[in-house]
Design a protein around this nucleic acid. Structure first.
Length: 509
RNA sequence: GGCGGCGUAGCUCAGUCUGGUUAGAGCAGGGGAAUCAUAAUCCCUGUGUCGUAGGUUCGAAUCCUACCGCCGCUACCA
């Protein structure tokens, strides 16, 4: 029976176009989703957009649009980006969709009836020109942190979620499920935070009009975070498809940025506990990208546009760089210099050149056809062992989402294959030992063929291109996992030598 | 302020939990080989105060203390 696998990105706020950080998160999910599909799991990979809230209404009116018109525009841009980056999501949820609004209202009502949401008063400092409430701690010298104007203390009617009630249960859960939060250094911060005491959470607003109405009290709208988090339930059929819900919930991985880790590891679990629903198995908080050593920000004007980078270096090179450059979970630095270095060293010199030299030799020495392998010698066995051992090593890393280590292991095999060529020196064998030559070339091609399966989740286009070069007729996407076993390459297959996969980039930057 | 983390080769880091061979890897640099290949590849090449000062120990990058430097978290802004 196929296992299920439910993985999510956050839903991205539609206040602006997406940047490298969003692309990073989504590409990482895509890699994992593709790998799991290859394993034969039934995958639900979800992404989408968070469309409610004051900021969206403001952004829209600034452009002379209604909030929904504005959201529609951003959504169409987001979808274009995911297509460009080869993102293979199964669903794209928008919080303005009817299926979601109904789910949120249902859940709000349920929690209210249960007593976990109650009506109270929210006390805060209100800035009339920004129409926003602030906590005392957010004020800068008693003034609005946004516009600097004087704020006034106001009380607002609000519904509250009894977050405080779940403090103990959360700590117990963290304790009993050490894998729940990753990376571990962020876990410590969360545990600490909960230990410090939890206050009930205001989960409705009367000042915010652009939001989902509280069903039994329409002057309130649902707080955007509650609205947003519930998307994970909506999309797997919480309300409308019991069978689907039973199958996919709980989510296997919520992959989120470190800045929203807390919402996913504290507030979200507490809500689920209140609903009596199992918690997601894992929440992973990834790091941020700086650019040329500097924090990325609009005001600095250094926001990296994923479209631009993919157009300049290729989508796969971009995907590769993001996944390879930084241990997953840590912050990383994006620079063209670093990208070019990775591109040349890993993609052009190691992988690309390995393919080129292998295919050329097959063309020159054995008429472009996969030869018949003969008896194995020591270096053959070493190579084959490396290739065969890849699966076991890689799957451990996938479980921990150490995607950069997955690539590290794949490239170890690629490096080894280059060394294998030097050791066996086929150009000499060509003159001295045809049988041995054929074995060596077969092993090389077979190594490339198997490795291509491992490259596929990271660089789908590249995998497809290598696959074609190797003379495979079926699409690699349709291949079952068994095809990655050593020795499935058929002798006699006609290969297709061609231009370099990754032409070297002159690094005069 | 409170809690936590980090400081190892020019650069990025592994190793520290479970103390014990000459402290490792990649990239960059230097030398050489080879010629199938995208001047790619392969081989050789690092005497590094393992932040500083103490301590524990037969023995510490690894445990403890202090100090210096950097960073994260400290809720309702997505």
């Amino acid at each position: 029976m196929a296992k299920k696998f439910y993985i999510t990105t956050p839903i991205f706020y539609v206040n602006d176009l997406l940047h490298i950080g969003h692309a990073y998160c989504t590409i990482a999910c895509d890699v994992v989703a593709r790998f799991k599909r290859w394993l034969g799991d039934e995958v639900l990979f979800l992404t989408g957009t968070d469309e409610h809230g004051q900021k969206i209404a403001q952004a829209a009116s600034l452009k002379g649009k209604t909030p929904l018109e504005w959201a529609d525009y951003i959504v169409s841009e987001d979808k274009k980006l995911w297509e460009k980056l080869n993102i293979s999501h199964d669903d794209f949820i928008r919080t303005t969709e009817e299926r979601h609004e109904r789910t949120v209202q249902e859940i709000f009502t349920k929690l209210y009836q249960k007593g976990d949401i109650y009506k109270g008063e929210y006390e805060g400092w209100y800035c009339t020109s920004c129409e926003t409430f602030y906590l005392e701690s957010q004020l800068e010298g008693g003034r609005c942190p946004e516009c600097g104007k004087v704020t006034e203390k106001l009380k607002e009617e609000s519904y509250f979620f009894k977050l405080s009630k779940y403090q103990k249960r959360l700590l117990n859960y963290f304790d009993e499920n050490p894998e729940f939060m990753q990376p571990s250094f962020r876990k410590a911060e969360m545990v600490n935070f909960v230990k410090g005491g939890l206050r009930d959470l205001s989960v409705s607003r009367t000042a915010v009009k652009w939001g989902i109405p509280v069903p039994f009290d329409e002057k309130h709208t649902v707080y955007v975070w509650l609205d947003a988090l519930i998307n994970y339930l909506t999309a797997c059929g919480y309300l409308e498809d019991k069978v689907k819900f039973e199958k996919f919930w709980p989510a296997d991985v919520h992959l989120v940025g470190k800045e929203i880790f807390k919402f996913h590891t504290i507030i979200w679990p507490a809500i689920l506990m209140a609903l009596g629903i199992p918690l997601p198995k894992k929440v992973f908080g990834h790091g941020w990208w700086t650019v040329e050593g500097e924090k990325m920000s609009k005001s600095r004007g250094n926001v990296v546009d994923p479209v631009e980078v993919s157009e300049e270096f290729g989508v796969d090179a971009f995907r590769y760089f993001l996944m390879r450059e930084v241990p997953f979970g840590q912050d990383g630095d994006f620079s063209k210099k670093a990208l070019v270095r990775r591109y040349n060293a890993d993609l052009a010199n190691n992988l690309g050149n390995l393919l080129s030299r292998s295919l050329t030799m097959v063309e020159k020495y054995v008429e472009g056809r996969v030869p018949e392998p003969g008896g194995e010698e020591k270096e053959d066995r070493e190579l084959i062992q490396k290739v065969k051992g890849l699966f076991e090593r890689v799957i451990k890393y996938y479980d921990k989402l150490k995607l950069n280590s997955v690539l590290g292991d794949i490239w170890e095999v690629i490096d080894y294959a280059n060394r294998y060529i030097e050791r066996t020196a086929p150009w000499k064998l060509e003159k001295t030992d045809r049988k041995r030559l054929e074995t060596v070339l077969y092993n090389l091609l077979e190594t490339l063929r198997v490795v291509t399966f491992y490259i596929l989740p990271f660089m789908p286009q590249t995998a497809e291109r290598i696959w074609e070069r190797l003379g495979m007729e079926e699409k690699i996407y349709n291949q079952k996992i068994e095809e990655a076993q050593w020795g499935r390459l058929k002798s006699g297959t006609k290969i297709k030598a061609g231009k370099p996969l990754f032409p070297r980039i002159k690094d005069d930057l």
